[in-house]
Write a protein that binds this DNA or RNA. Sequence first.
DNA 1: TTGAAAGCGGTACCAT
DNA 2: ATGGTACCGCTTTCAA
Lengths: 346, 346
Amino acid sequence: MNLKELADALELSQTTVSRALNGYPEVSEGTRLRVLSAARSFNYRPSAGARNLATGRSMAVRHIIPLSANHEMMNIIFSDFIAGTGEIYAEHGYDMIVSVVPEAQELQSYRDAVARGSVEGFMIHGPRRNDPRLPLLQELGVPFFVHGRSTGYDEPYAWLDVNNRRAIERATNYLIELGHQRIGLINGGEQMDFAQRRREGYVTAHVKAGISTDTTLMTSGDMTEPQGHIAALVMLDLPDPPTAFVASSILSTLGIRRAVESRGLMVGRDISIICFDDDITTLPNGSPAEPTFTASRSSVRAAGRRCAELLIDRINNQHLPPHQELWEAELILGGSTAVAKKDKTT
Amino acid sequence: MNLKELADALELSQTTVSRALNGYPEVSEGTRLRVLSAARSFNYRPSAGARNLATGRSMAVRHIIPLSANHEMMNIIFSDFIAGTGEIYAEHGYDMIVSVVPEAQELQSYRDAVARGSVEGFMIHGPRRNDPRLPLLQELGVPFFVHGRSTGYDEPYAWLDVNNRRAIERATNYLIELGHQRIGLINGGEQMDFAQRRREGYVTAHVKAGISTDTTLMTSGDMTEPQGHIAALVMLDLPDPPTAFVASSILSTLGIRRAVESRGLMVGRDISIICFDDDITTLPNGSPAEPTFTASRSSVRAAGRRCAELLIDRINNQHLPPHQELWEAELILGGSTAVAKKDKTT
DNA sequence: TTGAAAGCGGTACCAT
DNA sequence: ATGGTACCGCTTTCAA
């Protein structure tokens, strides 16, 4: 069923039917009702392609995911983030196109999508320092929204980020206040901007407390269970091992806990852990009432929802200066932190 | 740059340019080369909407993800699966549209997408028993491909599934051969067809070995770390606890391991575990050389790739009978299984 | 081998 | 308040 057929069935012109369907005011209430009910009964939907062509709007946004040896992108966080964005897009009638492309073609994919007019805006995942995508999109003049930030790109652009530096600074500082002096950092891959910021927060807390940092206590990599496990084992076996850990992900944290327990130590008694908790649906941090881990928490799903809203705003208000939003993570007290034991340091 | 402008620049007709670009044979080699090089230098791409309208093909497939209290769909497995499908779609020039919709609107979303002509086919995730999506799509006459199967729907349809029943039967049987008599099943949500099949495999192995099953040793739910942890704790505290576990997910398995260790027991010595391992990128089962857990393994990412290929085949060959493909999981021997201790049963 | 022109299914301007 | 019609940018039939 297309517009012409619907109009014929109603003995009206396509114009009137189109207007009625799209909520134009100049249609009489009577005909509007007739049209609406006929459209419903025929299950009429305007053709996406035709509308796209006629209006120049595709009602679609694109998430381009590079596929590479570096799998940071397609990680466990991704599904919660796009669950959040997808919800909002659907509410606003937008389609979410997820393109998985070889890393070498990543930038060209942006160009192609713009040239084909298949998309009204882009969501940028996992920005790196000096991320080449931002100047490219600026040059292409297409709306985009960044989940995170890219240090080194100084033009104004639209983003939402968690205050990763402060979150980890606070977390680290909390451990320091508990008396910990040797704190291991098990960070995400430091090509990621957020991981850099977290490391800065970790370092800043040390500097402010007058504690020197130790590179043997700082590691980074893909945020997986084995990564946390291996990194923690190495640190625990140092001559002067850490009494606490700060971790970038709850997944790494599961590995850290295993390492701790395998050394006959107990988390929350012998060893403290604070992690960054993205509040992932399938990786809950214990129950809300009783968090397993003390954590700096910020829901990545909520972030997805907000990013999607802001991308849509951006699309509809391209003349406005880009909106930027910084979220503070929440420090959640769980069972994984305790006052440092004094037996080592005294 | 559109076709008309490109044609004008080349002093050719749109027709010829279009033909040259689309590889029609009647264009002379000379003009074809000229056209191709001009298209490249102008970075010309045909408008997606216009082409869609003219050809009736949208070059897009849709994955509809219901959003509900039941979050099984948007789980950690999802990201690897769509990483796989996305790769293939991109290679074939298809867009992957991911729609996240409230559960109540799920079926209507299929109707809408078809009516709007925005899609050439659907990928069906996580089929349940008597899944209403299959008859609906059959009725709509649109190509679809099912990752998994739906018991209770008897028309032929295209699917790819892992032989979940046999995988878990073999896993269970392996434990039985090691002397285990009390084996806990920590299954995924049994509204899912695959979870039902896994339970059948578990039961079958018991029946064949002449061991009676015990409902206190069978549980199901969302496949998360806490689920595995809680379920395993409950079973370990039974008067007659299991000496082994079969788990549906590596995520649950992490929780089981924690429960085991918290009772002062050791995995692979006191307690054996076999899990189903989807070979998730961010949840590797140890290293390939040294798997942490004995597991029944089948890569969900590879499945995604194959499903996408088969969906595209289906779209291009709708007259053919639907292709069906059953994969056998591979039994991987890891460090989590051992001969049952005799102290309890003798 | 090339070109003219009629759609594809809408939207939106200009009339009435 | 309603209708006629010229696009939107491409593909494809028909003619030359």
